[in-house]
Amino acid sequence: MKVLRIQKAQATRDGAGVNISRIAGFDGKSLDPYLMIDELKSDDSQDFMAGFPAHPHRGIETFTYIRKGGFEHRDQMGNVKAIRSGDVQWMSTGRGVIHSEMPLADAVDGMHGFQIWLNMPAKDKMRPPRYQDSSQTGVATITTDAQVTLRALAGDWLIDGHSVSSALQGLAGNGAIADVILPANSSATLDVSQHQKVLVYIHTGKLSEPEYGELYLLDVEPKAPLSLIAGSQGAGVLVLAGQPIGEKIAHMGPFVMNTQEELQQAVRDYHAGRFGDIV
């Protein structure tokens, strides 16, 4: 793989004091069509039990993936779902969503998960919100001859000549997300040629070529096959792919629009109660 740019996640806090590692791209260029990658990884319940009380969004899509532990999701659309280990959840917030994400009681043994934000194109930012999760369909998974496992979290994937498709399609920017788990010293090749942006985030272990470990995000050349080679510890990576939207971004907290006036309108609409209330 040819690495074009390298970033390392930075420690921060969000929600009611949840400790996370974050890579942000609110310039609308560096991660496009993605805006932010948050990783929550801790065995200490004090790092995450305060959770994410009710808060609004407009103009983005949120994608949640849980590897360990779980959250209860609630929103003004009436969705009340337990998102547990192995589950994914997607909200295309459009003109407005209010939701909360609070740790499940059995998450006291630790938590490992991601929330990823995708930008929405201007033409879709004020459409009605949409919701989908994997609680009924599960997550499509394939294991190669080398015992490399790919979990197709969203979109379509081709690994070592084998294809697998997620039940979750239609993310903004044709977003596709996979969790690839490589045993020690194993390798796999993904065909990502249909995408214009490909990002590799290392969440477990290390890659050996190039040699990077946890918390690093690699922006890679999409025209070449994506060769993943694990080090002696093995490796786990999220692969995020898609088509850049290429539009101007105006960002304020949970709102991402195209102009400052649209941001101010989002704030007014929220305070006027136009986003609704969690049922």
Rank of each mutant, 00 (worst) to 15 (best):
Met1Ala: 08
Arg5Pro: 01
Ile6Gln: 08
Gln7Gly: 05
Gln7Met: 09
Ala11Glu: 13
Thr12Leu: 02
Gly15Phe: 13
Gly17Met: 14
Ile20Met: 15
Ser21Thr: 11
Phe26Tyr: 15
Gly28Glu: 08
Lys29Leu: 10
Ser30Leu: 12
Asp32Tyr: 14
Pro33Gln: 09
Tyr34Thr: 05
Ile37Phe: 10
Ile37Asp: 12
Ile37Lys: 08
Ile37Arg: 08
Asp38His: 10
Ser42Lys: 09
Ser42Leu: 08
Asp44Gln: 14
Met49Leu: 14
Met49Gln: 15
Ala50Pro: 10
Ala50Met: 09
Gly51Ala: 00
Phe52Met: 07
Ile60Trp: 10
Thr64Ile: 13
Thr64Arg: 12
Tyr65Trp: 13
Gly69Tyr: 04
Glu72Met: 15
Gln76Gly: 00
Gln76Met: 01
Gly86Trp: 06
Val88Trp: 06
Met91Asp: 06
Ser92Asn: 15
Thr93Trp: 06
Gly94Asp: 00
Glu101Phe: 04
Met102Leu: 10
Pro103Lys: 09
Asp106Val: 08
Phe114Trp: 02
Phe114Gly: 00
Gln115Leu: 14
Ile116Met: 12
Ile116Pro: 11
Pro121Thr: 02
Lys123Cys: 04
Asp124Asn: 05
Met126Thr: 00
Met126Ala: 00
Arg130Met: 01
Arg130Phe: 00
Ser135Val: 06
Gln136Ser: 07
Gln136Tyr: 04
Thr137Met: 00
Thr137Ala: 01
Gly138Lys: 01
Thr143Leu: 03
Thr149Lys: 01
Leu150Arg: 11
Ala152Lys: 14
Ala154Glu: 12
Asp156Asn: 14
Trp157Asn: 02
Leu158Ile: 03
Leu158Cys: 04
Ile159Cys: 09
Gly161Gln: 07
Gly161Asn: 08
His162Thr: 11
Ser165Leu: 03
Gly173Glu: 07
Asn174Ile: 06
Ala176Asp: 12
Asp179Ile: 15
Val180Asn: 13
Leu182His: 10
Pro183Asn: 11
Ala184Ser: 15
Ala184Pro: 15
Ala184Ile: 08
Ser186Cys: 01
Ala188Arg: 00
Leu190Tyr: 09
Asp191Phe: 06
Ser193Met: 03
His195Leu: 01
Val198Gln: 03
Leu199Gln: 07
Val200Met: 01
Ile202Glu: 13
Thr204Ser: 00
Ser208Gly: 06
Glu211Asn: 00
Glu211Met: 00
Gly213Val: 02
Gly213Ala: 03
Gly213Ser: 02
Leu217Glu: 04
Glu221Gln: 12
Ala224Cys: 00
Leu228Thr: 06
Ala230Phe: 04
Ser232Ala: 05
Gly234Asp: 07
Ala241Arg: 07
Ile245Val: 12
Glu247Lys: 01
Glu247Gly: 02
Lys248Gln: 15
Ile249Gly: 15
Ala250Phe: 11
His251Cys: 07
His251Val: 14
Val256Trp: 09
Asn258Val: 11
Glu262Val: 04
Gln265His: 10
His271Val: 01
Gly273Ala: 14
Gly276Leu: 13
Ile278Val: 14
Ile278Arg: 10
Val279Gly: 11
